[in-house]
């Protein structure tokens, strides 16, 4: 446990110093900061536009950071040979992988936390929203954090056997498809005209790929007034789902990484 902790804190220290990540993070914060000015887009749905644009920026920037941070994590260690000094110590490969992953999650938490903090502060000062909406926003930010933690697990998994560039597109692709799953499934399920085979496919894909769209719950946040029953259970459910899927990916990653020539 000490080794895992040590590796993960070192990973955080490195991640928050990576220039490319800091640049993306700065852009994210900047974009979030100019959002309150964007409300001219729609004078009457001012709050809607503000919230939706802020969450838009938060999500896309978090996803980008998660992918860029994670795809290089293992390959960099190999390329710079730090992995040799670490693996020649009494550190198992799975400990290394888990430590790296936890480090990525911690770093993502810090970065998303920063952006979400800026978002909440700006939102509060420019729009004077009721506390409930602030909490709604915070909840969505936390769900996005779980989402990118899952995405980081996807990227770590791929990084045990593909190059960073391929991984970048693979992970982005998986996220892309994964965040379409619910809307697609929904639209197939609603559309009785679609062929059963396509609906079956939709069902199959939905049950295989990590479902990132579970974490997009901003509809009622943007358009409040709907009371959703047992929302807390849903949030716990998504967190549990995320944990299970992360477990799958990390174990699969360990099994591959364990036989990997580094």
């Amino acid at each position: 446990m000490g080794a895992i902790l040590s590796i993960s804190t070192t990973t955080v220290g490195e991640a928050i110093r990576r220039r490319v990540l800091l640049v993306i993070l700065m852009i994210g914060v900047l974009l979030i900061s100019i959002v309150p000015a964007l409300s001219v887009l729609s004078a009457r749905s001012d709050l809607t536009t503000t919230i939706s644009s802020m969450l838009f920026v938060l999500r896309i920037v978090s996803v980008l950071i998660a992918i860029v941070l994670t795809v290089y994590m293992i390959p960099n260690e190999i390329e710079r040979r730090t992995i040799y000094t670490i693996l020649s110590k009494p550190v198992q490969r799975w400990q290394f992988l888990v430590g790296k992953y936890l480090g990525a999650v911690l770093a993502l938490g810090l970065m998303i936390g920063l952006m979400a903090g800026v978002m909440l502060i700006l939102f509060y000062f420019f729009k004077h929203p009721p506390m409930e909406r602030m909490l709604d926003l915070l909840r969505q930010a936390i769900l996005y954090f779980i989402e990118v933690s899952l995405l980081a697990a996807v990227a770590i998994f791929f990084s045990t056997f593909v190059t960073p560039l391929v991984n970048f597109f693979l992970s982005a692709g998986v996220w892309g498809v994964g965040s379409l799953l619910n809307p697609l499934y929904d639209s197939f399920a609603n559309n009785q005209g679609s062929a059963p085979i396509i609906r079956g496919m939709a069902k199959f894909v939905t049950s295989i790929l990590p479902n990132f769209s579970n974490y997009d719950v901003k509809n009622p946040i943007i358009n409040p007034g709907v009371t959703i029953q047992n929302e807390t259970t849903y949030y716990l459910g998504t967190a549990g789902y995320g944990l299970l899927y992360i477990t799958i990916l990390i174990i699969a990653g360990i099994l591959i990484f364990d036989r990997r020539e580094v």
């Binding site: 490195e14 710079r80 730090t82 000094t85 550190v91």
Partner: peptide
């Protein structure tokens, strides 16, 4: 691994440390 040690060729250490 507890009683051996390895110094790789031109090693890299985390530069921020």
């Amino acid at each position: 691994h507890r009683v051996i040690s390895y110094l790789p060729e031109r090693p890299y250490y985390y530069e921020h440390m």
